[in-house]
């Protein structure tokens, strides 16, 4: 299909993009990798009047591993994350999540900024960033501000970004946690039916701190606080399995053609077990 008519502007820098977005108002959308927005436009489910293309802003494309944190430019592609040895050493969870997104074409075009700002509860990276207590750096006409991942995702395809604001960087604190992302899907390139990001810290073999991010288990990416609490002190598969049952506390799993709410809850429990096991393996 052919998208509905739209205007197109290429931004010279972030400030110009902010101005263009501001001028375009609610009917303006940012275009980065285009791998979420363009399919929606082709189906005429999204009809922006103005596309502000920031795909050419190469200074937003970086992965910097620093002492205290990892800073990732909004235009770093999923492939950039998956292929960075430094990132894999500093924050395996992010690299392991990025390498499972979509297919090779999507990973080479899709960006972390686009994935996060699109705020699709079925996207992989938001769940991982939630588990990693990431912060989102955004720039608008009022200047720059930081939004915690926990506050960023407010609904399906809805984020805390204000009109005219651009996500420029994602920061992930370095905690030394082991991490893994495990998802269940019907086809390799599908969105996850359920995805689980696990960031696990241990003393010996016993878990001391656990953060669990869930993909496609509600209107936004979610943490599983009951599971996280129950995982503390868990030592071995039996205890992890018991803790994973606490995912039943979640009231919000969606039902669709791929999975009923019941089945999703069950899958989440299985995937939590597998993600924790993979993280500490």
């Amino acid at each position: 299909m052919i998208p509905a008519p739209f205007e197109y502007e290429r931004a010279a820098d972030v400030a110009a993009a902010v101005t263009l977005l501001q001028q375009g108002g609610v009917e303006a959308r940012l275009l980065a990798g285009g791998h979420s927005l363009l399919p929606l436009m082709r189906l005429r489910l999204a009809r922006p009047r103005l596309l502000v293309d920031i795909g050419g802003l190469d200074d937003l494309r970086y992965v910097r591993v620093e002492d205290e944190r990892v800073s990732i430019g909004a235009l770093a592609t999923h492939h950039d994350l998956a292929s960075s040895a430094q990132l894999r050493a500093a924050c395996a969870l992010l690299a392991r999540t990025a390498e499972q997104i979509g297919d090779p074409q999507v990973r080479h075009r899709g960006t972390i900024g686009g994935s996060v700002a699109h705020a699709d509860p079925a996207s992989d990276l938001p769940a991982a960033l939630l588990a990693l207590d990431a912060e989102m750096i955004v720039q608008g006409t009022e200047g720059t501000r930081s939004i915690a991942a926990a506050d960023f995702f407010v609904g399906p395809l809805m984020s805390a970004l204000r009109d005219g604001e651009i996500l420029t960087e994602v920061r992930v604190p370095r905690t030394g946690a082991a991490g893994a992302y495990v998802k269940f899907q019907r086809r390799a390139q599908d969105w996850a039916i359920v995805g689980v990001a696990a960031a696990i810290e241990r003393d010996g073999s016993a878990i001391t701190h656990a953060r669990i991010g869930l993909c496609n288990m509600g209107p936004t990416p979610l943490r599983a606080p009951g599971v996280e609490t129950a995982l503390v002190g868990a030592d071995g598969p039996g205890a992890v399995a018991t803790a994973a049952t606490r995912v039943a506390e979640l009231k919000t799993p969606p039902a669709d053609q791929n999975a009923s709410a019941d089945y999703r809850r069950h899958l989440a429990e299985v995937m939590i077990r597998r993600a924790v096991a993979a993280a500490v393996a």
């Binding site: 019907r186 086809r187 599908d190």
Partner: peptide
Amino acid sequence: SSMLNYLVPSAAE
């Protein structure tokens, strides 16, 4: 109504 939910498998499956 689209390949999003009519699941045509690929070589990977």
